[in-house]
């Protein structure tokens, strides 16, 4: 009898005679007591309160312009695998270990938790190693609830998904919150939202 079999035997013997309870409905709609007006608004509010930054542009051209301007402060960049050529700024592309800036594509986002969904297929190092991380997000891919997001992921799971809900932080030293402990200390969600009319792309950078 293997260790596996002995564990199963002990589990079954422990459960013998015990009621096997029903599985409850998967939790319907998560509702904060004060729900946001729209998924994007909800995502933005929570992501910002966790220390993340949100910039909203109305189309890809606007995103490209914003990235080009923002990236002038950085000496080097690492791109996620799925970043389209039109969004790539004219910056030396280096290995993720030494890049000053990471630019990735989000698979989606979650309003109720303020999370970006990062797919391993876009490249994990690009998502984690640079001190500043810019993540491009399509507003249409923002799910109201975490439950909806998880159900949408189910049919197409890579080796890993990361939810990034703000900059890396820790209060382990004397219970004082500090940012950028291991992962990026600055995270900017660049939301492409056709419903937004933004003319001056410098807004929100501050």
């Amino acid at each position: 009898m293997s260790g596996r079999d002995r564990i199963f035997a002990r589990v079954r013997s422990a459960l013998a005679g015990r009621d096997r309870t029903e599985l409850p409905e998967s939790f319907g709609e998560w509702r904060l007591k004060s729900p946001p007006v729209s998924p994007v608004e909800g995502f933005q509010a929570l992501f910002e309160s966790a220390g993340g930054e949100v910039v909203r542009v109305s189309d890809r051209a606007g995103a490209a312009t914003w990235i080009a301007r923002f990236s002038t402060d950085f000496p080097s960049v690492i791109f996620g695998e799925h970043v389209p050529a039109e969004l790539k700024p004219d910056l030396p592309s280096v290995t993720p270990e030494v890049a000053a800036l990471g630019l990735s594509m989000a698979r989606g986002a979650v309003a109720e938790t303020g999370s970006l969904l990062m797919d391993a297929r876009d490249g994990r190092r690009a998502q984690l190693l640079a001190p500043t991380h810019v993540v491009v997000l399509d507003a249409a891919a923002v799910y109201a609830s975490l439950r909806e997001a998880l159900i949408s992921l189910k049919d197409d799971l890579p080796s890993a998904i990361g939810f990034h809900s703000g900059p890396s932080k820790s209060a382990d030293i004397g219970q004082i919150m500090v940012r950028g402990v291991h992962g990026p200390g600055r995270v900017i969600a660049l939301v492409i939202d056709e419903s937004v009319i933004v003319q001056d792309h410098k807004e929100g950078i501050s």
């Binding site: 966790a50 109720e112 938790t113 303020g114 799971l157 890993a160 998904i161 990361g162 939810f163 809900s165």
Partner: peptide
């Protein structure tokens, strides 16, 4: 927190 800052789902 509403959720841990980072969540990993590893398959």
């Amino acid at each position: 927190q509403p959720i841990g800052n980072f969540v990993s789902l590893i398959q």
